[in-house]
């Protein structure tokens, strides 16, 4: 017994190394899926609070750009107003419209932590379950799609951005509605994505717009980017192309979380159908 104690004491560095290394690897493997994300992330009080404060400071540096993008969005929305259309039918009847029912609502949120330079990037926003945010909701900004909510705290949430190895969203070519999926390019360039698995009879050309499809978390037609290269080597039988992303992820300031009113119904139905099979 005494010899064993001496042995352990002599090589204590090695045994301590083993103990600490195993415990940190256990944390890494257990919590990295974000399914059971622990308090060790940026939604807790200390880290989240610090990020929020520093972000106040950063906010001043990009006021001009935020202003510009808001002004642009205002202009775009104003063109959709009824008042800006010329009415060319003389007899105008008031029809009470019951066809439309609101499907999507949006919760605006401020980005308090962001990264674009790692192989898995996350964004922290300052809205949480108390404001009605739930896991799996889509996130967009004024110029395009941002990502998906993966972890919700009471006041903050973590968004898995498109710049993540596991991010994959249904997308289509805007003109001929050919469906594929969009994912991040594999060389960590925050301005590049790949549109994959597009059917072979689509004839895409450079500069064509890529938007979200009807099957994604987002409303259809939200811009993603523009086709920038038609010939990339990624393998597979379908068409793959490179997309220049519309959103500058490094400069995100304000985002909107998409709340789909029918998401629960859809998920319930699909789960039931799976059970029946």
């Amino acid at each position: 017994m005494r010899n064993l104690w001496i042995f352990i004491n002599k090589y204590n560095a090695f045994f301590l190394f083993i103990i600490f290394e195993i415990s940190s690897l256990v944390i890494y493997i257990k919590y990295n899926s974000f399914q059971k994300a622990s308090f060790i992330n940026s939604t807790n009080k200390i880290t989240g609070g610090l990020y929020a404060q520093v972000n106040e400071l950063y906010g001043y540096l990009s006021l001009r750009e935020t202003n510009d993008s808001l002004a642009k969005e205002n202009a775009r929305l104003r063109t959709q107003l009824k008042a800006s259309f010329y009415v060319d039918s003389v007899n105008k009847k008031q029809v009470k419209d019951t066809i439309y029912k609101q499907q999507y609502t949006y919760i605006e949120a401020k980005v308090i932590n962001n990264s674009t330079n790692r192989s898995n990037n996350y964004i922290t926003i300052d809205r949480g379950s108390l404001q009605g945010i739930g896991k799996g909701m889509g996130v967009i900004c004024s110029s395009g799609i941002v990502g998906k909510v993966v972890f919700v705290g009471p006041h903050m949430s973590i968004v898995q951005s498109l710049l993540h190895k596991d991010s994959r969203f249904s997308a289509m070519l805007a003109k001929n509605h050919e469906i594929g999926y969009i994912e991040w390019a594999d060389d960590l360039d925050p301005h590049k994505g790949y549109l994959k698995d597009v059917s072979n009879n689509a004839q895409p050309h450079l500069g064509e717009e890529v938007v979200t499809s009807e099957f994604s978390l987002f409303p259809a037609g939200i811009p993603i980017g523009k086709v920038s290269n038609l010939h990339i080597k990624t393998g597979g039988y379908a068409l793959n192309m490179e997309v220049k992303l519309a959103v500058d992820y490094g400069k995100l300031q304000y985002v909107d979380v998409v709340v789909n009113k029918f998401a629960e119904e859809q998920a319930g139905l699909e789960a039931q159908q799976k059970k029946n099979e």
Binding site: F17, E21, S23, L25, Y28, K30, Y31, I40
Partner: peptide, 29 residues
């Protein structure tokens, strides 16, 4: 080892990668 682990875990908390930096820091120690 304890300080390395602590340092790594704090950096992890800010980087949203629980355990990654902690494991590397323990190896470094």
């Amino acid at each position: 080892f304890a300080l390395s682990f602590l340092m790594g875990i704090i950096i992890d908390a800010f980087y949203d990668t629980p355990g990654l930096h902690a494991a590397s820091c323990v190896l470094l120690a």
